[in-house]
Amino acid sequence: MALTEIFVLIRKEMQLEWRNKYAIHGLVLYLAATIFICYLSFKAKQQSIHPIMWNTLFWIILLFSAVNAVGKSFTQESANRNIFYYTFAKPESVIFSKIIYNTLVMLGVSLIGIFFYSWVMGNPVGNMPLYLISLILGAIGFASTLSLVAGIAAQGENSATLMAVMSFPLIIPLLLLLLKLSKSALDGISLSENWDEIAILGALDIIVIVFSGILFPYIWKH
């Protein structure tokens, strides 16, 4: 069954992560260090930060963490082991398991991030539930877009550069929509007035996931 296959693959990802904890520790440390640098360069110097800048800065931190976290999806395991997966798992299961796993990672990163970020930088958000919705939609969107891009980049020779060059322009539509939604949350606008933005973001997430499912088999086939 495809579903059980996806679950097995997700469990494998988690076990791998659990065995060499340095990757997830590195990610959290990366996040904490970036946030602290932002604190030192903005808040500590000027005593205050404009709410719009607060929001933009946070999304940029999340974007860079996402590129780092998702970018290693296909490069951390050896090519031989990828061939081994190729023999028994369907490519759709592989990409969907990566997307789900990366979404979980990004949700964790977003939540730890917003907690730590609010702690040192203050929290001007007016409508926190809506902000959390934008974080969830952002986690899904980042994970799905970047998983496919990571698959493409892993095929090239200089995959770190390729990953950055491809993912930044491709992620901009998503990032602009997220900034707009989270700006509304920042201003304390109620959920019912933002259904349009949420629907468009959800639709974009679904489009990206569907196309990942269609296109990934062609990358996977060597």
Binding site: L148, I152, Q155, G156, E157, N158, L162, V165, M166, P169, L170, I207, F211, L215, Y218, I219, K221
Partner: peptide
Amino acid sequence: AYSLVRSSMPDEMQKARISSVYNIFAFV
């Protein structure tokens, strides 16, 4: 970035396959 992807792949078949995938995704 599309042209960069193309120039980073040494193998012809691989270049064609990967850049086709990227092209479709980028168009969407």
